[in-house]
Structure formats: structure tokens, C-alpha cells
Amino acid sequence: MDEVRRFRPALIAWAAGGAGADEAAAAARELAGGLRTVVLVEGGSDQVALEALATRHGRDLGAEGVAVVPLGGATSIGRFLDVCGPAGLGLPLAGLCDIGEERHFRRHLERVGLGSGLTPAALETLGFHVCVADLEDELIRALGAEGVCQVIEAQGELRPFLTFQGQPAQRDRPVEHQLRRFMGTHSGRKALYAQALVAHLDLDRVPRPLERLLAYV
């Protein structure tokens, strides 16, 4: 697990380039031997959700040599594939993205030689899974609006959510849309609810992309 914790920031610094990239690359190469798979996800909330779901299944991804690495945005996928894909570290890869960002993942996977003319089914075969809209949307549909509101109340945020619902821009929108927007209003709130919603999921209703990704790794 310590190797995974050290590998993640080294890989991120290497992919970012600039000052210190050479040292980060050396550290990532040294630590890569202890890894089994690198999972590339768009952001920190995706990482939190996958690791929380693994915990519910009695798994510790870090201890298994699985490094879940947030890209800081889907457009960074190319740089990460360059450093940990076939021309870089050559590590087994998997990933998760929103449907709106699928084109970035598909284009760069093809560019680095991990397929051609990739269809959604072919992406899944490679271990890359796509959320309909985004992960928050997947989790809200899995739990239902009432279930999500119960989680919000348990987090002590029901009053802020009701205030948010009353805003002119939100009043006429479906509650599912309001919930999704609410989770993105404050820094750290997406990660907070990624963990909380996964904790309350019925394991028979796990969103397909998350379930398939965990099964793959």
C-alpha cells in the first residue's frame, strides 16, 4: 500500500511535466514494479467512490497493488497514457470517465496503440468504463432521489440543500438535477458524497460502470 501512496503523486508530477518531472519519473519507475494495475479516473470523487466500493467488498486496492489515479480532468488522459502506457511504464491500465469525455479517452487509447476504432464495448474490454452523464448521476439514479436526500440529511446538509432548491435557477428543475448540481457547489463536496452515497448503496444496485470497473481490477 505504501508503494501505491508514493506512486500516485510521483506519476501525477511526471505527467504534469515542468520542474521536478525527471525526479518524479525516476520515483514512479522505481515504484512501478510493485503495482498490478493503474486505474485512471477523471477526478478525486471517482477515486473515492471506487475505493469505497472496494472496501464494501472487503478489498483494499492499495494492498492489492492497484493505484487509482485522478487525472485532474479528462483532457489530461493523453499525458498519463504517455507515461504509464505502452511507451512509458507499460503497466496494465483501466479507467473511468463521463460520457461527455469518452472521446478523449478513446482517441488517446488508440493513439498509444491500445486499440483502433474503439466502440463502447471495446473500451470495456480494455477496462475503461463510461458513466452516463457522470458518476454523481449514476449514484443518484442507483439510490433514488429520496435515498440521496436521506444521505444529505445524515451529512447535516439538508437545510443548505433546501436553500439551494429555492434558488430561482433551480426551482423548476427535476430533483435529480438539483441533487447533482448541489454536489458540485462546494470544493470537496463531490468527494464527500461519493463516499457517503457508496456507503448507502444496496450492493445489488451498484452503477454498472463502477461495478464493472471494480470487477475488472
Rank of each mutant, 00 (worst) to 15 (best):
D2N: 15
E3P: 15
E3W: 13
R5D: 15
R5M: 14
F7G: 03
P9Y: 05
A15I: 03
A15K: 07
G18H: 10
A19T: 10
A19C: 09
A19V: 12
A21Y: 06
D22Y: 12
D22C: 08
D22M: 11
R29E: 12
E30G: 13
L31Y: 03
G33D: 05
L35D: 03
V41N: 02
E42L: 03
V48N: 04
V48P: 06
V48H: 02
A49Y: 01
T55G: 15
H57I: 08
G58M: 10
D60T: 10
L61H: 02
A63F: 11
G65Y: 02
A67W: 00
V68I: 07
P70W: 00
P70R: 06
G73V: 07
G73I: 07
A74T: 07
T75V: 14
S76P: 01
I77T: 01
I77F: 08
F80P: 03
D82V: 08
D82P: 10
D82L: 11
P86E: 07
G88M: 03
G90M: 11
L91F: 09
L93C: 02
L93R: 02
L96H: 06
D98Q: 08
E101M: 13
E101S: 15
H104L: 11
R106V: 02
H108G: 01
G113C: 08
S116Y: 04
L118F: 07
P120L: 09
L123G: 05
L126E: 02
H129Q: 10
C131L: 06
V132C: 14
A133W: 04
D134H: 00
E136Q: 05
E136Y: 05
D137Q: 10
E138S: 11
R141C: 10
G144R: 08
G147C: 02
C149R: 15
E153R: 13
E157Q: 13
F161S: 01
F161G: 00
F161A: 00
F164G: 05
Q165I: 11
A169M: 14
D172S: 15
D172A: 15
R173S: 13
R181G: 14
R181N: 15
T185H: 13
Y193E: 00
A196I: 08
L197Y: 05
L203G: 02
P209H: 04
P209A: 05
L213S: 08
Y216T: 08
